[in-house]
Design a protein around this nucleic acid. Sequence first.
DNA 1: GTTTACGCATCCCCG
DNA 2: ATGCGTAAAC
Length: 659
Amino acid sequence: MARSGTYVLRPQKQREPRFRIEYDQLLNGSQLEAVTTTEGPVLVIAGAGSGKTRTLVFRVARLVEMGIDPRSILLLTFTRKASSEMLRRASSLLDGRCDDVAGGTFHSFANIVLRRHAKVLGIDSGFTILDRGDNEDVINLVRARLGFDKKEKRFPRKQTIASIFSMAVNKSRTLGELLETSYSHLIDHADDLQALLTSYEAYKAERQLLDYDDLLLVLHRLLETQESVRDQLSRQYRYIMVDEYQDTNPLQAAIVRLLACQHENVMAVGDDAQSIYAFRGASFRNIMDFPDLFPGTQIVTLEENYRSTQPILDVTNHIIAQARERYSKSLYTVKKDGESPLLIAAESENFQSRFVCQRILELREEGVPLPEMAVLFRSSFHAFDLELELTRHDIPFVKRGGFKFIETAHVKDALAHLRVVANPRDAVSWHRVLLILEGVGPRRAQSLTAELTASQDPAELLDAQSGRSYSTALRALAGLVRNVRQADRHPEEQLNQVLQYYDPHLKRIHRDDYPKRAKDLEHMVSIAARYKSLETLLADMALEPPSDSVGDVVAIDEPEGLLTLSTIHSAKGLEWHSVFILWAVDGRFPSVQSMHDDEELEEERRLLYVAATRAKQNLYICYPINMYDRAAGMVLSKPSRFLDDVPPEILTPMDLVEE
DNA sequence: GTTTACGCATCCCCG
DNA sequence: ATGCGTAAAC
């Protein structure tokens, strides 16, 4: 075909720059290296406050700008809040293009994958997730069934058993090995524990129940045994990033290894000095071993700290310098000036609390807003006295970590009713629901539960129980189940139905503090309102329960914001202008339980390191001189051994004296 | 045989 | 404040 031969000249379109974000302007050299190394295994050793989150955010944005499908990027983090926050930031850099990036915790990722693929392993997609309390309940149930509750020799408590079972999974050890190495005092019970474990596994399998560990375990089994699923997932998630790698365990590492089988594009980010979850089976060795798992790993170290002043870093560097084994790195900052951190000796716990209140009020006067301040502690109960004192001074606060309101009896009761509707074979929840009724105890609950989980229509079966003192109550329950079951109901409405039914029971069981508990349940309704389906609500309640502690569900519309109280574990990754650390006393921090074991002591040291590195400007480490001991009465305390080697020029000792 | 009420030790950190 | 064992009540 002949062309006409005439040409038109048109101004050249402005060529788009390859990248909209000016990475080299916004990141330092190491961060840039981490962000631009997009192919192959990368390990980022990120010191505290070194811009780890920023690096991950920009790397997500970079991959998307390179034209990679957001759905093929997987960001695994420690909490789902962390991943959604990072993805939100990445999205705002790139006007929403990062919204489709897959993100979450290992557990939430496992949940999603298993709902879709676990059928091939004989697990129904409607499986129920057992939280820690549930799994202890099941262990108790099975223990009673095997007759171990009536042994002459004292059998370990259910929490102990649960944590041993869990540890075995997370450390990829057999029960026998674990008992030998870590629980030698229980070796006499080895056979019974093994039998209990076997029954526990069988019990869950029959009823489509998965505990937290099963989520990881089954995901691992799926990836290992189902080649086609593994290849499909690995091809789908071509770029994998794992945050807080120092707090992952060998099982999680194995999952990452399998997921990356097609491409090895894995970036692990973490800080061995901040590994604080060994009690959950995590090991900082994981991060040390990453290069062995992925040969050819590029290691990038982030050492410039953007958070804290030099005087604070001097203290934290001293605390961690004593640690026995670590990737060596030393943090530095450009913020050379700042006040020296203080070590405050208070006469008693209450003096400690009053000092904190007073200093907080002074700082507020100086213009530091309450949300920029935090009080951190080893254990939730360490803050009880302070909470009273804060209330007395009208200082509003939220408390993070510790006992969660989701773990209270009444909230679990309400949820159990929803769970039996979602999974009629959920024996744990049936049991719980039945026990609420008058005239039904463990025995009858158990036999009814057995019938219910085997029945085609539980509601019908409940109706059929006549002639008992409690048969009217069972009929009421049947009515509730029928109502809630209607498929087109909204979770909020379903929960309201449950509460209407449960309310008289709540009044009867908790006569004294009924109003407080009723308020918690109202809070539950507002949470349920955020969900479209019952299944996602229940999965979320198990996978990421609201982190508010009991009593903090009251409205939080304080205009000037809230002071944060937090366990150190829950403070991971966060930062504040001014940070107070309570109870830096031998016996509390490190805790007595850890003092017999070197590894546990090392973890306590890292925990103090994590706490101290949260501070940007002011750091106050407090301890009471006199403390109450149940056995010995009032005793003189000794400051935490981790502070022994920090020179007084660096951490200034102060006595708290009354004017 | 079962449930319930009562008194007693115990209490870390968490998805 | 919960979680256990034991004794009284249904």
